[in-house]
Design a protein around this nucleic acid. Structure first.
Lengths: 248, 248
DNA sequence: AAGTGGTCTAGACCACCCG
DNA sequence: GGGTGGTCTAGACCACTTC
């Protein structure tokens, strides 16, 4: 049993106090000195916790004034990571998934470079096709390409999983540290119209190509998915504490 | 003349050494102890610098092994903030802008809540319409809605600026700390087809609604823009150092 | 002047990886 | 066992805001 670090304990406690409304939007948190005493800690772990709260969007800090609960704090921790908004706030459980197909395929030309596969590397990779539903309506069509170094045979048998990251973590002790997404607008073709049950003759979709990596920059999988953005709002949040960044 | 903090000096030096290739992709950086000596500093500022390098995507750190230059390090610092890829790497100067129109308008219903304007607040806000070109071809159509507390009269006269953030910073000493974007796929209407010079009868566009905020969560402006994603690739990067996040 | 967050020192011990 | 990054202590001084 690993003991949680002190700063993580402080972070978790503050998150729960913010989420529960003990500290309300816009409210000032205790000063760093007061938090030192509250948690019987020195300033370093307290500041580590506050720093993480800030980068996770729970609070903002103003020099000379204090730390305050953010008005736009994340409603769910997964929001920014999945890229999907909490539009259906706390209705996450209404989302279901269905695995359509699992097969071994040679890497498509568009996928190989993203997984850093060399031309000579002809290893088959696992391709998985899934659909996500909201209240029974199909909203996202997904294709997953797993890196060949993961011989995932268990996918066929294990139908009722939620995330690929979950499986990678449990079966291979691999953690996702980073993900890049490329976003395009495309027209739905006949097949997508069918699976996503689109009525209009010309429906635009968001196509996202997501590549996920370990902390050591090794690609884990490529995920191409098509979103009916009329049903789902796609949301992204940028933070830049320090420098004034260029804008439109 | 303000003196730059020590950790920022170390950060800037390491960035330039990575960008220049002095430290190459995948290469191990000097250990924290060695950096202490190199910069005649204690561990705190060195770790602050490394921490920022990591969150900015320049390096990754592995416990027990060292810090390494990332294979996917940012080619330009602005990339992740603007949301646009360096697809036309180092050709940023080929991007030009034209201001079509600047006017005072009542806040549209879709914009008011984003700027946190109350119903009673009937102040006019500055609306600016612009187009961005790449090598003379129009690729982005933008509408800017500035919060009423900025009475920007200088926009009319100052035609050749680059970013709104620049003006907010210089005229009002206001810094952008955060931006949220909502992304949709839409069909180009006749007007957009015209200004973006789209040939196809049915061209899908990416519509982005971006709201920018100060560090204190005050909305500064709303920016609605339409992108021809056939010409521009839209790119987003997510990082999560700590916890294993949920995935598709 | 008092209070706050931002930076920095000079140590210490722990957890993890590798030879 | 030696080297690395991760956590933590107990201080110090600085920059900024508020009164």
């Amino acid at each position: 049993m690993k003991i949680k670090s002190l700063y993580k304990t402080i972070y978790d406690d503050l998150v729960s106090k913010i989420m529960s409304g003990y500290y309300k939007e816009g409210q000032k948190l205790p000063s760093e000195k007061e938090l030192d005493q509250l948690y019987h800690a020195s300033r370093t772990p307290v500041r580590q916790a506050l720093s993480k709260l800030e980068s996770d969007g729970f609070i903002y800090r103003l020099q000379g004034r204090g730390s305050f609960v953010s008005d736009n704090r994340p409603k769910q921790l997964w929001t920014r990571m999945t890229g999907f908004t909490n539009y259906y706030l706390s209705e996450w459980e209404k989302i279901t998934s269905r695995t359509i197909d699992v097969e071994k395929v040679p890497a498509p030309a568009a996928i190989s470079p993203l997984l850093k596969l060399t031309d000579g590397d002809s290893a088959l990779l696992t391709k998985m096709t899934r659909i996500r539903f909201y209240e029974g309506d199909p909203i996202i069509y997904l294709q997953h390409y797993l890196h060949p170094r993961f011989p995932v045979e268990s996918l066929q048998s294990n139908e009722n999983f939620f995330s690929i990251a979950e499986i990678l973590n449990e079966e291979f002790q691999v953690k996702v540290a980073r993900a890049d997404e490329e976003i395009e607008a495309i027209m739905a073709d006949d097949y997508l119209k069918d699976v996503l049950q689109l009525d209009d003759a010309h429906t635009p979709l968001i196509k996202v190509t997501r590549t996920s990596y370990t902390a050591a920059d090794e690609p884990l999988d490529v995920n191409v998915y098509y979103v009916n953005s009329k049903r789902w709002k796609f949301e992204v949040s940028f933070r830049q504490s320090e420098k004034n960044f260029e804008f439109f």
